[in-house]
Design a protein around this nucleic acid. Structure first.
Lengths: 309, 309
DNA sequence: CGCCTTTCATTAGAATAGCTAATAGTTGTA
DNA sequence: TACAACTATTAGCTATTCTAATGAAAGGCG
């Protein structure tokens, strides 16, 4: 590899390299050997005259040049993908689209939307990542990721926030718990048992602490902390304590009988979720369509004032 | 070329192909043979499953797919170029920048700006085209071309217009003409001689006709029409008649003594020129810098209210 | 503490992509 | 009709870019 050519594959491999943090995994994703990936990166670095990935002791860190190159990779593949799709399927909406959501939304609220969206627009090559809220903001701002989904969205100078859903909060407990047989509960019921929490600092955790503290002036003992809904639910199932969760995240367990869910009586509490998009760069057609798909607009209603969807 | 790869060169060659309208010329520009270019285009068309360039009787027309691909090519090369420049020369402003101007601006008002701009930002790969006003609007809207320069700019929903210069209009005539010895002239002086005009429909011509007609109620006999300043001036030099031109476009000929230039006495007339940029897509850093360079802001003044330039 | 596992780097050599050169096939023009 | 100026096609060579094998470095674990 000396005076070599810059294929588009190089950019895709580089993305996967950053994505997976591993030469061999990136190689596998692209049906290549680890050696090929190593040579490709070597070629890029020689060609650009700068290290792109710092791979020393604290394994795998993007350099500033690497970040710059990653941004370009994304733009390039995006541009090509959109054009190819537009040419192959004229009139259809297509091309790549990267959606980043926090775990709880990605695993529960989002799937039905994704399914119907892909049925409607099969030419869109959707790539979803379920990551932490911090990473969602980070990725959106830095140009990876086209659409973000977070809970308790906070505004940011470079991002636009659109309201997505309001998920009703409820108390979740093991099926054997006395609370499980109740029709409704109140915040006070929390105090009698240890609490299974999200990690401190996560937006949902902060909001719940805030809510409970404002209403009760105190907070139950925290039995355990988890960084995502799925493992947190496992904690509740095995009886570590009870918790507050958005209802949509527990419907599967409630149906399966592995968790019980008791809604709040008088004031219903909600977790707002929001859609994030960049302000500066306009969304691709596919991106715009997807956001429209998420927004609570009447799509199935027969008659609307404007006639069409 | 069967299961070939998409190099960045393919996109560059495709641009040149569209640009030159010829396989052999595009090949020459890229140090290739005509055969290679033919194979490349064939590969692209097979790969995308669509004709990109219609090359039949009315030689060389881009198809819809071709236009789509051209747009993508531009975005791709732009993204790569910017990244490469940012990586190779960190902190410097660089990357590709495409400036499109009408002949008269490109040949006279622009060069000093371009020279100083390139001295200041040598990493910018500037590509200028001097074309008709119509093409400037067209190219800007369709995403080729980052910055446009036209006379009598008209607004367009997709374009933003910034005022550039106001060029003083004057009467130009052959050095032997009796008018040549006058200090000033008035519009009435036009009527005594045939007029050398721009082609009908060109903005500058329309504006001049409008001006003369509004003031005099008539228009001198048109001796000849030209589609650009340079040939028009040749017409005046050989005595076809006199004309109205922006002063900056004739300074060279006046100094050389091949043309005379007489300013208007009482009201000075001006030709406004404007900078065009797209509203939707944000300009690259280089583009922003260039526009700032063109705008009449104090760059050399030592003290400003805001401190720094 | 050293062995084993994992990961990236470096070769040489095989596979293949992409070029040139030559030539055939168009189309418009004198 | 022949010519001029294109683009298309083909065969074959060269250079690029893989794979396979191996080396080196580092982390995990008994």
């Amino acid at each position: 590899m000396k005076g070599a050519r810059l294929h588009l594959d190089l950019f895709a491999v580089f993305q996967d390299l950053v994505d997976t943090g591993s030469f061999s995994k990136a190689a596998a994703r692209n049906h290549l050997t680890q050696s090929a990936v190593s040579q490709q990166l070597g070629f890029l670095e020689r060609r650009l005259g700068a290290k792109l990935i710092e791979r020393g002791k604290d394994r795998f860190a993007l350099t500033e040049a690497g970040r710059e190159f990653l941004r370009a990779s994304w733009k390039i593949l995006q541009a090509y993908g959109e054009a190819e799709s537009a040419i192959r399927h004229p009139g259809a909406i297509g091309g790549p689209l990267r959606v980043e959501a926090i775990y709880s939304i990605g695993l529960h609220a989002l799937p039905p939307y994704i399914k119907s969206f892909l049925t409607r627009f099969p030419q869109v090559r959707l790539r979803t990542s379920y990551i932490t809220a911090e990473q969602v903001y980070e990725d959106l701002i830095h140009g990876h990721g086209d659409v973000g989904l977070v809970a308790y969205p906070r505004s940011h100078p470079q991002l636009r926030v659109l309201p997505f859903q309001r998920e009703r909060l409820a108390i979740a407990c093991a099926p054997g718990d006395p609370l499980a047989s109740r029709k409704t509960a109140s915040l006070k019921d929390l105090l009698s048992r240890p609490f299974v929490a999200f990690e401190r600092g996560l937006p949902t955790q902060k909001a719940i602490e805030d809510l409970v503290f404002r209403r009760l002036g105190t907070f139950p003992r925290v039995a355990a902390e988890f960084d995502n809904v799925e493992t947190l639910k496992r904690g509740v199932e095995v009886g570590l304590g009870i918790t507050i969760l958005p209802e949509p995240t527990v419907v599967a367990e409630v149906q399966a009988g592995s968790l019980a869910c008791v809604p709040f009586a008088t004031p219903a509490y909600h977790r707002p979720t929001g859609i994030l998009i960049r302000k500066d760069q306009p969304l691709s057609r596919a991106g715009k369509e997807f956001v429209r798909w998420l927004l609570p607009q009447p799509r199935t209603i027969k008659t609307t004032k404007r006639g069409q969807i």
